[in-house]
Amino acid sequence: HMTFVALYDYVASGETDLSFKKGERLQIVNNTEGDWWLAHSLTTGRTGYIPSNYVAPSD
Rank of each mutant, 00 (worst) to 15 (best):
Gly48Cys: 01
Gly23Thr: 02
Asp17Gln: 15
Tyr49Ser: 04
Leu38Ala: 03
Arg46Lys: 14
Arg46Asn: 11
His40Ser: 10
Asp9Phe: 02
Val11Gly: 05
Met2His: 12
Thr47Gln: 09
Arg46Val: 08
Gly34Asp: 13
Thr43Ala: 11
Gly14Tyr: 11
Asp59Tyr: 08
Val29Phe: 10
Ser19Ala: 07
Thr44Ile: 02
Thr3Cys: 07
Val29Gln: 08
Leu42Pro: 10
Asp17Arg: 12
Thr43Tyr: 08
Thr32Trp: 09
Val29Gly: 05
Asn53Arg: 13
Thr3Ser: 09
Thr32Met: 13
Ser19Arg: 03
Tyr8Phe: 13
Gly14Ala: 13
Lys22Cys: 05
Lys21Val: 14
Thr43Cys: 09
Val5Cys: 04
Leu38Asn: 02
Trp36Thr: 07
Phe4Ser: 03
Leu38Met: 08
Leu18Gln: 03
Ala39Asn: 00
Arg25Lys: 14
Leu38Gln: 05
Phe20Cys: 03
Ala12Ile: 03
Gly34Val: 10
Gly48Met: 02
Asn31Arg: 13
Met2Cys: 07
Asn31His: 11
Ala56Phe: 10
Glu24His: 04
Ala39Glu: 00
Glu33Leu: 13
Leu18Ile: 11
Val29Leu: 15
Asn31Ile: 10
Leu18Trp: 03
Ile28His: 01
Thr32Asp: 13
Lys21Arg: 10
Val5Gln: 06
Gly48Pro: 00
Asp17His: 15
Asp59Phe: 12
Tyr8Met: 11
Asp9Gln: 03
Thr3Phe: 13
Leu7His: 03
Thr43Asp: 15
His40Val: 15
Val29Lys: 09
Asp35Lys: 11
Leu18Arg: 01
Ala56Trp: 09
Gly14Gln: 13
Asp35Ala: 13
Ser52Gly: 07
Arg46Pro: 00
Ser41Arg: 01
Asp35Pro: 09
Thr32Tyr: 09
Ser52Lys: 12
Asn53Ser: 15
Tyr10Lys: 03
Leu38Arg: 04
Pro51Trp: 05
Tyr49Asn: 05
Val55Glu: 02
Asp35Cys: 07
Glu24Arg: 00
Gly34Lys: 12
Gly14Leu: 10
Tyr8Ala: 14
Pro57Gln: 10
Glu15Gly: 08
Gly48Thr: 01
Ile28Phe: 03
Met2Ala: 10
Ser13Ala: 15
Ile50Gln: 00
Gly34His: 12
Pro57Asp: 07
Tyr10Ala: 01
Ala56Tyr: 10
Trp37Met: 06
Tyr54Lys: 06
Trp36Lys: 10
Thr16Gln: 13
Tyr54His: 10
Gly48Tyr: 03
Asn30His: 11
Ile50Asn: 00
Asp59Lys: 04
Gln27His: 13
Lys22Asp: 01
Glu33Gln: 15
Val29Glu: 08
Lys22Ser: 08
Leu42Ala: 06
Pro51Thr: 02
Tyr8Trp: 15
Lys21Thr: 12
Val5Leu: 08
Ser58Ala: 15
Met2Arg: 12
Tyr8Asp: 06
Gly34Leu: 11
Asn30Gly: 14
Ala12Lys: 05
Leu38Glu: 05
Ala39Asp: 00
Asn31Gly: 13
Thr32Asn: 11
Glu33His: 13
Thr43Val: 12
Ala12Arg: 05
Ile50Lys: 00
Asn30Tyr: 09
Asn30Asp: 15
Tyr49Val: 06
Asn31Lys: 13
Gly23Tyr: 05
Asn53Thr: 12
Tyr54Met: 12
Ser19Cys: 04
Leu26His: 00
Glu15Arg: 07
Leu38Tyr: 12
Val11Cys: 08
Ala12Trp: 02
Thr43His: 10
Ile50Tyr: 00
Val29Ser: 07
Tyr54Ser: 13
Thr47Gly: 06
Asp59Gln: 13
Asp59Glu: 14
Glu15Met: 13
His40Lys: 14
Trp36Arg: 12
Gly23Ala: 03
Phe4Val: 15
His1Gln: 15
Glu33Cys: 08
Tyr49Arg: 08
Val55Gln: 02
Ser58Met: 15
Val11Pro: 05
Asp17Met: 14
Ala6Gln: 00
Ser19Met: 06
Ser13Ile: 13
Gly23Ile: 00
Asp59Arg: 02
Lys21Asp: 07
Tyr54Leu: 15
Asp35Val: 11
Ser13Glu: 12
His40Gly: 03
Glu33Val: 11
Ala39Tyr: 01
Thr16Tyr: 14
Thr44Asn: 05
Asn30Gln: 13
Met2Val: 13
Glu33Trp: 10
Glu33Tyr: 12
Ser52Met: 09
Val11Ala: 10
Ala12Asp: 02
Ser52Trp: 09
Gly34Arg: 14
Val5Tyr: 10
Ser58Gln: 12
Gly14Ile: 10
Ile28Asp: 00
Pro57Cys: 05
Phe20Met: 07
Ile50Asp: 01
Lys22Asn: 04
Glu24Met: 01
Phe4His: 06
Tyr8Gly: 04
Leu42Trp: 07
Thr44Arg: 02
Asp17Ala: 09
Asp9Leu: 01
Thr3His: 14
Ser58Phe: 14
Gln27Trp: 15
Thr32Gln: 13
Pro51Val: 01
Trp37Asn: 02
Arg46Ala: 13
Leu18Asn: 02
Pro51Arg: 05
Gly23Ser: 03
Glu15Ser: 14
Asn53Leu: 10
Val29Ala: 08
Pro57Glu: 11
Thr47Arg: 10
Leu38Val: 07
Leu18Pro: 05
Ser13Leu: 12
Ala6Ser: 05
Asn30Cys: 08
Thr3Ala: 08
Gly34Phe: 09
Thr32Ala: 14
Pro51Cys: 05
Leu26Ile: 08
Asp59Asn: 12
Ser52Val: 08
Trp36Glu: 04
Ser58Ile: 15
Val11Phe: 11
Lys21Ile: 09
Leu7Cys: 06
Arg25Gln: 15
Phe4Cys: 07
Gly48Ala: 04
Asn53Asp: 10
Ser41Gln: 06
Tyr49Lys: 06
Tyr49Phe: 14
Val55Asn: 03
Leu7Asp: 02
Leu18Ser: 03
Leu18Lys: 02
Leu38Thr: 03
Ser19Tyr: 04
Leu26Pro: 00
Ala39Gly: 05
Arg46Trp: 09
Val5Ala: 04
Lys22Ala: 12
Phe4Ala: 07
Thr16Phe: 15
Glu15Asp: 13
Arg25Ser: 11
Thr3Tyr: 15
Glu15Thr: 14
Ala6Ile: 03
Ser13Thr: 15
Asp9Gly: 04
Gln27Phe: 10
Asn31Ser: 13
Ser52Glu: 04
Ala12Leu: 03
Gly14His: 11
Gly48Trp: 01
Val55Cys: 04
Glu24Tyr: 01
Tyr54Thr: 05
Thr3Gly: 06
Asp35Gln: 14
Tyr49Ile: 07
Thr44Glu: 03
Ala6Val: 10
Val5Arg: 04
Pro57Ser: 08
Lys21Asn: 12
Tyr49His: 05
Thr43Asn: 12
Val29Pro: 04
Val11Arg: 07
Ala12Tyr: 02
Pro51Lys: 06
Leu38His: 04
Ile50Ala: 02
Lys21Met: 12
Val11Ser: 10
Ser58Tyr: 15
Thr32Pro: 10
Ser41Gly: 01
Asp9His: 04
Thr32Gly: 10
Leu18Glu: 02
Ala12Thr: 04
Ala56Met: 11
Ala56Glu: 11
Ser58Trp: 15
Glu24Cys: 02
Pro51Ala: 03
Thr47Cys: 08
Ala56Pro: 04
Phe20Thr: 02
Thr47Glu: 09
Tyr54Glu: 02
Ile28Met: 06
Ala39Met: 12
Ala39Cys: 06
Gly48Lys: 01
His40Arg: 15
Phe4Lys: 02
Trp36Met: 12
Lys22Thr: 08
Asn30Pro: 06
Arg46Phe: 10
Ser41Met: 02
Ala6His: 00
Val11Lys: 11
Met2Asn: 12
Asp9Ile: 01
Trp36Val: 07
Ser19Thr: 09
Tyr54Trp: 07
Ala12Glu: 04
Ala39His: 00
Leu7Ile: 09
Lys21Tyr: 08
Gly23Met: 03
Glu33Ala: 12
Asn53Ile: 11
Gly45Arg: 05
Thr16Ile: 09
Glu24Asp: 12
Tyr8Leu: 08
Asp59Ala: 10
Thr3Ile: 15
Tyr54Pro: 02
Ala39Val: 13
Ala56Cys: 08
Ile28Val: 14
Ala56His: 08
Ser19Phe: 05
Glu15Leu: 15
Gly14Val: 11
Val29Ile: 14
Val11Trp: 12
Val29Met: 15
Val11Tyr: 14
Phe4Asp: 00
Asp17Thr: 09
Phe4Pro: 00
Trp37Glu: 01
Asn31Tyr: 13
Tyr8Gln: 10
Phe20Val: 08
Asp59Ile: 12
Leu38Cys: 06
Pro51His: 06
Leu7Ser: 04
Ser41Cys: 04
Asn53His: 15
Trp36Phe: 10
Gly45Ala: 04
Ile50Phe: 03
